[in-house]
Protein backbone atom coordinates (compact mmCIF):
# COMPACT_ATOMS: atom_id res chain seq x y z
CA UNK A 1 0.00 0.00 0.00
CA UNK A 2 1.43 3.36 -0.90
CA UNK A 3 -1.66 5.48 -0.63
CA UNK A 4 -3.78 6.61 2.29
CA UNK A 5 -7.30 5.28 2.61
CA UNK A 6 -8.65 8.84 2.97
CA UNK A 7 -8.34 12.13 1.12
CA UNK A 8 -8.60 14.19 4.29
CA UNK A 9 -6.97 13.85 7.69
CA UNK A 10 -9.88 14.84 9.89
CA UNK A 11 -9.06 12.64 12.83
CA UNK A 12 -7.20 9.52 13.90
CA UNK A 13 -10.57 7.88 14.51
CA UNK A 14 -11.15 7.75 10.76
CA UNK A 15 -7.84 6.26 9.61
CA UNK A 16 -6.50 2.72 9.75
CA UNK A 17 -3.38 1.31 11.47
CA UNK A 18 -2.02 0.74 7.96
CA UNK A 19 -2.45 4.44 7.20
CA UNK A 20 -0.51 5.28 10.35
CA UNK A 21 2.31 2.88 9.43
CA UNK A 22 2.50 4.40 5.95
CA UNK A 23 2.72 7.90 7.43
CA UNK A 24 5.50 6.74 9.78
CA UNK A 25 7.50 5.11 7.00
CA UNK A 26 7.13 8.22 4.85
CA UNK A 27 8.10 10.41 7.81
CA UNK A 28 11.25 8.30 8.32
CA UNK A 29 12.32 9.29 4.81
CA UNK A 30 11.50 12.95 5.31
CA UNK A 31 13.33 13.02 8.63
CA UNK A 32 16.40 11.89 6.76
CA UNK A 33 15.82 14.74 4.28
CA UNK A 34 15.61 17.22 7.14
CA UNK A 35 19.06 16.24 8.27
CA UNK A 36 20.63 16.89 4.88
CA UNK A 37 22.41 20.16 4.11
CA UNK A 38 19.71 20.94 1.56
CA UNK A 39 16.46 20.28 3.40
CA UNK A 40 14.07 20.78 0.55
CA UNK A 41 12.41 18.38 -1.90
CA UNK A 42 10.23 19.26 -4.89
CA UNK A 43 7.42 16.82 -3.98
CA UNK A 44 4.60 19.40 -3.72
CA UNK A 45 5.75 21.89 -6.33
CA UNK A 46 2.71 23.60 -7.91
CA UNK A 47 0.54 22.63 -4.94
CA UNK A 48 -0.91 25.55 -2.98
CA UNK A 49 -1.69 25.04 0.68
CA UNK A 50 -3.68 27.43 2.85
CA UNK A 51 -2.98 27.38 6.57
CA UNK A 52 -6.20 28.66 8.08
CA UNK A 53 -5.97 29.19 11.81
CA UNK A 54 -9.10 30.42 13.54
CA UNK A 55 -7.43 29.85 16.90
CA UNK A 56 -4.07 31.04 18.14
CA UNK A 57 -1.18 28.78 17.36
CA UNK A 58 2.54 29.25 17.17
CA UNK A 59 4.25 25.90 17.00
CA UNK A 60 1.65 23.93 15.05
CA UNK A 61 1.33 26.67 12.45
CA UNK A 62 5.10 27.07 12.15
CA UNK A 63 5.56 23.32 11.96
CA UNK A 64 3.02 22.99 9.15
CA UNK A 65 4.45 25.97 7.31
CA UNK A 66 7.94 24.60 7.53
CA UNK A 67 6.77 21.18 6.39
CA UNK A 68 4.98 22.74 3.41
CA UNK A 69 8.00 24.83 2.44
CA UNK A 70 10.36 21.86 2.75
CA UNK A 71 8.06 20.12 0.24
CA UNK A 72 8.23 23.15 -2.09
CA UNK A 73 4.50 23.92 -1.81
CA UNK A 74 3.18 27.44 -2.22
CA UNK A 75 1.85 28.58 1.12
CA UNK A 76 -0.72 31.16 2.16
CA UNK A 77 -1.39 31.89 5.81
CA UNK A 78 -4.61 33.13 7.23
CA UNK A 79 -5.31 33.66 10.90
CA UNK A 80 -8.39 34.85 12.73
CA UNK A 81 -6.68 37.97 14.02
CA UNK A 82 -6.35 39.21 10.44
CA UNK A 83 -9.43 37.57 9.02
CA UNK A 84 -12.88 38.72 8.15
CA UNK A 85 -14.36 36.28 10.63
CA UNK A 86 -14.44 39.11 13.09
CA UNK A 87 -16.49 41.11 10.61
CA UNK A 88 -19.19 38.43 10.80
CA UNK A 89 -18.24 36.31 7.77
CA UNK A 90 -19.10 32.64 8.18
CA UNK A 91 -16.57 29.84 8.12
CA UNK A 92 -17.86 28.51 4.82
CA UNK A 93 -17.63 31.95 3.17
CA UNK A 94 -14.15 32.55 4.48
CA UNK A 95 -12.91 29.25 3.21
CA UNK A 96 -14.71 29.53 -0.13
CA UNK A 97 -13.04 32.88 -0.67
CA UNK A 98 -9.68 31.35 -0.08
CA UNK A 99 -10.47 28.41 -2.32
CA UNK A 100 -11.46 30.80 -5.11
CA UNK A 101 -7.81 31.59 -5.12
CA UNK A 102 -7.27 27.98 -6.33
CA UNK A 103 -5.94 26.40 -3.17
CA UNK A 104 -5.35 22.64 -3.31
CA UNK A 105 -5.14 21.84 0.38
CA UNK A 106 -6.37 23.42 3.56
CA UNK A 107 -4.76 23.02 6.96
CA UNK A 108 -7.28 24.29 9.46
CA UNK A 109 -7.39 24.91 13.17
CA UNK A 110 -10.75 25.85 14.63
CA UNK A 111 -12.32 26.04 18.06
CA UNK A 112 -15.43 24.06 17.06
CA UNK A 113 -15.37 20.25 17.22
CA UNK A 114 -16.25 18.92 13.78
CA UNK A 115 -15.44 22.16 11.92
CA UNK A 116 -13.11 20.32 9.47
CA UNK A 117 -15.81 17.68 8.89
CA UNK A 118 -18.20 20.50 7.99
CA UNK A 119 -15.63 21.86 5.55
CA UNK A 120 -14.98 18.45 4.04
CA UNK A 121 -18.67 18.19 3.16
CA UNK A 122 -18.64 21.57 1.47
CA UNK A 123 -15.34 22.07 -0.36
CA UNK A 124 -13.26 19.97 -2.68
CA UNK A 125 -9.72 20.60 -1.38
CA UNK A 126 -7.90 18.07 0.80
CA UNK A 127 -8.26 19.02 4.44
CA UNK A 128 -5.88 18.50 7.31
CA UNK A 129 -7.28 19.03 10.77
CA UNK A 130 -4.75 21.01 12.79
CA UNK A 131 -6.96 20.86 15.87
CA UNK A 132 -10.73 21.23 16.20
CA UNK A 133 -11.79 22.38 19.63
CA UNK A 134 -11.81 19.56 22.12
CA UNK A 135 -12.14 16.90 19.45
CA UNK A 136 -8.96 15.84 17.64
CA UNK A 137 -5.45 16.98 16.79
CA UNK A 138 -4.38 14.12 14.56
CA UNK A 139 -0.93 15.28 13.47
CA UNK A 140 0.05 15.83 17.11
CA UNK A 141 -0.95 12.26 17.94
CA UNK A 142 0.97 10.97 14.93
CA UNK A 143 4.11 12.85 15.88
CA UNK A 144 3.76 11.71 19.51
CA UNK A 145 3.45 8.07 18.49
CA UNK A 146 6.27 8.51 15.95
CA UNK A 147 8.47 9.90 18.74
CA UNK A 148 7.63 7.00 21.07
CA UNK A 149 8.44 4.56 18.26
CA UNK A 150 11.73 6.34 17.66
CA UNK A 151 12.66 6.36 21.35
CA UNK A 152 11.46 2.90 22.41
CA UNK A 153 11.62 1.02 19.09
CA UNK A 154 7.91 0.23 18.97
CA UNK A 155 4.60 1.51 20.27
CA UNK A 156 2.88 -1.88 20.56
CA UNK A 157 2.81 -3.23 24.10
CA UNK A 158 3.97 0.03 25.68
CA UNK A 159 2.11 1.70 28.55
CA UNK A 160 1.37 5.35 27.96
CA UNK A 161 -0.08 7.62 30.65
CA UNK A 162 -1.70 10.83 29.45
CA UNK A 163 -1.67 13.21 32.40
CA UNK A 164 -3.50 16.49 32.88
CA UNK A 165 -6.56 18.22 31.45
CA UNK A 166 -8.15 15.38 29.49
CA UNK A 167 -11.56 17.07 29.27
CA UNK A 168 -10.41 19.98 27.15
CA UNK A 169 -7.70 18.17 25.25
CA UNK A 170 -7.88 17.26 21.58
CA UNK A 171 -4.36 15.87 21.97
CA UNK A 172 -5.59 13.33 24.53
CA UNK A 173 -8.41 12.04 22.33
CA UNK A 174 -6.24 11.72 19.21
CA UNK A 175 -3.46 10.11 21.23
CA UNK A 176 -5.84 7.56 22.72
CA UNK A 177 -7.13 6.55 19.26
CA UNK A 178 -3.65 6.49 17.73
CA UNK A 179 -1.88 4.60 20.51
CA UNK A 180 -4.65 2.00 20.73
CA UNK A 181 -4.55 1.47 16.97
CA UNK A 182 -0.83 0.80 17.32
CA UNK A 183 -1.31 -1.70 20.16
CA UNK A 184 -0.33 0.38 23.22
CA UNK A 185 -2.09 0.43 26.58
CA UNK A 186 -3.36 3.86 27.58
CA UNK A 187 -4.14 5.42 30.94
CA UNK A 188 -5.47 8.89 31.58
CA UNK A 189 -4.71 10.69 34.81
CA UNK A 190 -5.88 13.97 36.27
CA UNK A 191 -8.42 15.54 38.61
CA UNK A 192 -11.87 13.92 38.31
CA UNK A 193 -13.29 17.22 37.08
CA UNK A 194 -10.90 17.21 34.11
CA UNK A 195 -11.61 13.66 32.96
CA UNK A 196 -14.80 13.11 30.90
CA UNK A 197 -17.27 10.95 32.84
CA UNK A 198 -17.47 8.33 30.09
CA UNK A 199 -13.73 8.09 29.36
CA UNK A 200 -13.61 4.41 30.36
CA UNK A 201 -15.79 3.69 27.32
CA UNK A 202 -12.75 4.52 25.19
CA UNK A 203 -10.98 1.47 26.60
CA UNK A 204 -8.48 3.36 28.74
CA UNK A 205 -7.55 3.07 32.41
CA UNK A 206 -8.39 6.03 34.62
CA UNK A 207 -6.19 7.13 37.51
CA UNK A 208 -6.28 10.19 39.72
CA UNK A 209 -2.96 9.70 41.53
CA UNK A 210 -0.08 10.97 39.43
CA UNK A 211 2.57 8.97 41.30
CA UNK A 212 0.63 5.75 40.59
CA UNK A 213 0.31 6.70 36.93
CA UNK A 214 4.05 7.33 36.67
CA UNK A 215 4.75 4.01 38.36
CA UNK A 216 2.52 2.23 35.81
CA UNK A 217 3.71 3.80 32.59
CA UNK A 218 6.64 3.62 30.19
CA UNK A 219 5.83 7.04 28.79
CA UNK A 220 4.12 10.00 30.46
CA UNK A 221 2.58 12.40 27.98
CA UNK A 222 1.89 15.45 30.10
CA UNK A 223 -0.77 17.84 28.81
CA UNK A 224 -0.97 21.53 29.11
CA UNK A 225 -3.63 22.93 31.44
CA UNK A 226 -5.98 24.49 28.90
CA UNK A 227 -6.97 27.58 30.83
CA UNK A 228 -8.14 29.19 27.60
CA UNK A 229 -10.70 26.42 27.02
CA UNK A 230 -11.98 26.25 30.59
CA UNK A 231 -15.07 28.43 30.66
CA UNK A 232 -15.79 27.59 34.29
CA UNK A 233 -13.71 26.49 37.30
CA UNK A 234 -12.53 22.90 37.33
CA UNK A 235 -9.97 23.07 40.17
CA UNK A 236 -9.28 25.62 42.91
CA UNK A 237 -5.96 27.11 41.80
CA UNK A 238 -2.87 26.54 39.69
CA UNK A 239 -0.94 26.24 42.93
CA UNK A 240 -3.08 23.32 44.10
CA UNK A 241 -2.98 21.72 40.65
CA UNK A 242 0.78 21.94 40.61
CA UNK A 243 1.05 20.45 44.11
CA UNK A 244 -1.19 17.46 43.43
CA UNK A 245 -0.96 16.86 39.69
CA UNK A 246 2.30 18.48 38.60
CA UNK A 247 5.38 16.38 37.91
CA UNK A 248 8.79 17.13 39.38
CA UNK A 249 12.17 15.46 39.33
CA UNK A 250 11.79 13.99 42.84
CA UNK A 251 8.81 11.99 41.66
CA UNK A 252 10.82 10.54 38.78
CA UNK A 253 13.73 9.75 41.12
CA UNK A 254 11.40 7.75 43.35
CA UNK A 255 10.47 5.41 40.46
CA UNK A 256 12.26 2.10 40.13
CA UNK A 257 12.58 2.57 36.37
CA UNK A 258 13.27 5.19 33.75
CA UNK A 259 10.29 6.64 31.97
CA UNK A 260 9.99 8.96 28.97
CA UNK A 261 8.44 12.40 29.44
CA UNK A 262 6.53 14.07 26.62
CA UNK A 263 4.56 17.29 26.31
CA UNK A 264 2.81 18.75 23.24
CA UNK A 265 3.75 22.28 24.26
CA UNK A 266 3.63 25.04 25.15
CA UNK A 267 4.53 24.03 28.70
CA UNK A 268 3.15 25.82 31.71
CA UNK A 269 6.44 25.48 33.57
CA UNK A 270 5.91 24.98 37.30
CA UNK A 271 2.29 23.94 36.76
CA UNK A 272 2.00 20.58 35.00
CA UNK A 273 5.73 20.11 34.55
CA UNK A 274 8.69 21.45 36.49
CA UNK A 275 11.71 22.67 34.54
CA UNK A 276 13.88 19.99 36.17
CA UNK A 277 11.71 17.43 34.35
CA UNK A 278 11.05 19.30 31.10
CA UNK A 279 14.74 19.86 30.54
CA UNK A 280 15.93 16.49 31.89
CA UNK A 281 17.32 13.50 30.03
CA UNK A 282 13.90 11.85 30.44
CA UNK A 283 12.29 14.44 28.22
CA UNK A 284 11.87 14.05 24.44
CA UNK A 285 9.90 17.27 24.11
CA UNK A 286 12.25 18.85 21.57
CA UNK A 287 12.44 15.62 19.54
CA UNK A 288 8.63 15.79 19.33
CA UNK A 289 8.93 19.24 17.78
CA UNK A 290 11.54 18.04 15.27
CA UNK A 291 9.49 14.96 14.40
CA UNK A 292 6.44 17.17 13.97
CA UNK A 293 7.87 18.62 10.77
CA UNK A 294 8.71 15.22 9.30
CA UNK A 295 5.34 13.73 10.18
CA UNK A 296 3.45 16.71 8.76
CA UNK A 297 5.52 16.51 5.57
CA UNK A 298 4.49 12.86 5.32
CA UNK A 299 0.80 13.66 5.86
CA UNK A 300 0.76 16.48 3.31
CA UNK A 301 2.72 14.49 0.76
CA UNK A 302 0.49 11.42 1.07
CA UNK A 303 -2.78 13.36 1.01
CA UNK A 304 -1.70 15.26 -2.08
CA UNK A 305 -1.54 11.88 -3.80
CA UNK A 306 -5.21 11.10 -3.01
CA UNK A 307 -7.79 12.89 -5.11
Amino acid sequence: MSQLSTRHLLGIKDISPEDIQLIFETADNFKEVLNRPIKKVPSLRDITIANIFFENSTRTRLSFELAEKRLSADVVNFSSSTSSVKKGETLIDTVNNILSMKVDMVVMRHSSPGAPHFLARNITANIVNAGDGTHEHPTQALLDAFSIREKLGDVAGKKIAIIGDILHSRVALSNIFCLQKLGAEVMVCGPTTLIPKHTVSLGVKVEHDVEKALQWCDVANVLRIQLERQQIKYFPSLREYSLYFGINKKMLDRLDKEIVIMHPGPINRGVELNSDVADSEHSIILQQVENGVAVRMAVLYLLAGVK
Binding site: K13, P113, G114, D132, G133, T134, H135, E136, R170, L173, P196, K197, H198, T199, S201, L202
Partner: peptide
Protein backbone atom coordinates in the same frame (compact mmCIF):
# COMPACT_ATOMS: atom_id res chain seq x y z
CA UNK B 1 -19.93 7.47 24.93
CA UNK B 2 -20.52 9.31 21.63
CA UNK B 3 -19.88 12.80 23.02
CA UNK B 4 -16.67 11.46 24.57
CA UNK B 5 -15.53 10.02 21.24
CA UNK B 6 -16.15 13.22 19.33
CA UNK B 7 -14.89 15.58 22.00
CA UNK B 8 -18.17 17.44 22.28
Amino acid sequence: VVSTRIGM
